[in-house]
Design a protein around this nucleic acid. Structure first.
Lengths: 338, 338
DNA sequence: CTGAAAGCGCTAACAC
DNA sequence: GTGTTAGCGCTTTCAG
């Protein structure tokens, strides 16, 4: 059952009146087969609805045309509910359709280090790891097993690791800081996430370096990515208690929306007195009033680059990275100062 | 490469000083093996980090612990971008983690009838088809190949088909109509989607039957699920042009938000003059002002029921359905009449 | 209780 | 150009 209707290469060979080698070679364009035989075999295969058994083939060639996706940022959540960041919600679907276009199927594999590990997990051709953490056990496991992988986001603790792609986060960080600056803000607050990934680290570092260059005391408020709107409100209250800043930059759209609610509730004007922006766009950012300026990430472009790298890695055993895409800043009312 | 580090059953056998049969039986709890041997084998397997090759195993037993997910509602979109309906965005992730808990991995397979079909596609143990269309070619293909599947949503053109699960849509439809009625509305308009699936059909049918029972002339406005907020605004304008109703019921949260924007723009009060509700919750519905009443679907519960059915089907060759879950009506300000 | 051996469907040497 | 054959790693009779 579930095995290509039981039509084997032997059936096709019999039908076409040739050997099974002839069938294999014809269908895979491998050996030296006359055009005529090739055509006859193809016809026979079509008539029978022949489809090479993926397992048998995989067993012989050691690869099967399937890659796995591990979403580290979602592993913390039991139910894989989107964390309110557009890019997470969309990436699996986008990667899957991009992979399909290359003849690869995409399997979602939650945390490989937790049992039960699905049987196929260690037989994937390779993996895409989204938002790997520092000292990520999943990365260790793949290394130990010698399974090829590429990452969406760099490995914080392995600066020599190059097989990653992502939006250019430091660039985006500088861009938003310049955006605030151009609108006249100097006292800028950062609401960062708590996951130990490159995304948080890069923005934090650029922020700190900006503060240093401008002689401003940094104000960083940590808030779990998963705390959502309420976490944003919490951060907002803490920020206001410490003194009203000219601008607040949040890593997630939900946090930004929460901060904005509290800022408005305190009777402050957005963007008049406080500007607000987010490092990742989401429905919350778009539909808040005023709408919140945010970066639209580029999961589609990044997915393509990651697949390029992974395929190269599978083929040649190595690949060169990192490869960067660009996030697009979407200026909205929350930072419009005129 | 990518093959369990190359540790085979033979290596384990040698290490434990037994035959490969003993290893296989020990690890799978199959034959009659002494407790002592079993323990020795297990120890050897652990030390070597042995992991049975999924392809070899799959080849022998014809199944591999992997199921496929086809999202018909998203196949129409090239990039699998969520259509603004919570349940689509979440279902893949939820199903994947629920499947994992049962030792199954989940592979996303966009439209099986379009090439190139990934190699594994026809070797899946079974499939979950989300929102199958009427006369769905994917269903035909699976039937032809004899590949087991279950559906999220019934097959409109196959009333005898029972291997499906979903929220009880007719019940939800009656519930929202009663909700409107209780708030004093009689002239109710339906903004339906255009996909030919059970979801649309069931709501439409209950709506028509309600109208008939109440001697009200039905007013149905079709709008593609993919038209989003703009589509909702368009529907809103058409509705207002035809006469202001007491209530508008939209299949998607985005449509509802769009309709509400136009209703408010026309100077009408929501819910004072026009009430609005949606058949599926989404960020749009929640963050509109006033917030829009909507049904919160139950993808987690439905995923479990679907997996129950699929596993039963795989094991016994048959399963009984349909199995219904319940959507929860979330009353919000858009229908609060006091 | 344990092991030898057949064979799943396929690909790739290697003969013819 | 074409066919024979040896396995890939595993499970499963079937003898011992």
């Amino acid at each position: 059952m579930a095995r290509g209707k039981g039509v084997t290469i032997r059936d096709v060979a019999r039908r076409a009146g040739v050997s099974i080698t002839a069938v294999s070679h014809s269908l895979n364009g491998k050996g030296t087969i006359s055009e005529e035989t090739r055509a006859r075999v193809k016809a026979a295969a079509d008539e029978l609805g022949y489809q090479a058994d993926a397992f048998a083939r995989g067993m012989r060639q050691g690869s099967i045309g399937a890659i796995g996706l591990v979403m580290r940022s979602l592993d913390a959540l039991g139910d894989y509910t989107p964390a309110g960041v557009d890019v997470f919600e969309r990436f699996a679907g986008i990667l899957s359709s991009r992979a399909l276009a290359r003849g690869l199927s995409l399997t979602l594999v939650p945390d490989l280090t937790r049992s039960p590990v699905p049987p196929l997990a260690f037989s994937m051709d390779g993996y895409v790891i989204m938002s790997p953490n520092a000292q990520d056990p999943v990365i260790d496991l793949l290394d130990r097993r010698g399974i090829p992988y590429v990452c969406y986001g760099k490995l914080l603790d392995k600066p020599d690791f190059t097989r990653w792609s992502s939006e250019d986060d430091p660039l985006a960080a500088r861009q938003i800081l310049a955006h605030f600056e151009a609108a006249g803000a100097r006292e800028i607050v950062l609401v960062s996430g708590t996951d130990r990934n490159a995304w948080n680290a890069d923005f934090l570092q650029e922020y700190l370096s900006w503060c240093e260059r401008h002689g401003v005391t940094p104000r960083v408020y940590e808030q779990s990515e998963r705390s959502g709107l309420d976490g944003g409100r919490d951060a907002g209250l803490r920020i206001l208690a410490d003194g009203v800043p000219e601008a607040v930059f949040c890593m997630t759209g939900r946090h930004a929306a929460g901060v904005q609610q509290e800022v408005l509730a305190a009777g402050l004007a957005v963007p008049g007195q406080v500007m607000i922006a987010a490092a990742s766009d989401s429905e919350h950012a778009r539909s808040s009033r005023p709408a919140i300026t945010a970066f639209e990430l580029n999961p589609a472009g990044t997915a393509d680059l990651l697949l390029d790298m992974l395929q190269e890695l599978l083929k040649t055993g190595e690949t060169m990275g990192p490869r960067l895409t660009r996030a697009r800043l979407r200026p909205r009312a929350s930072t419009r100062k005129d």
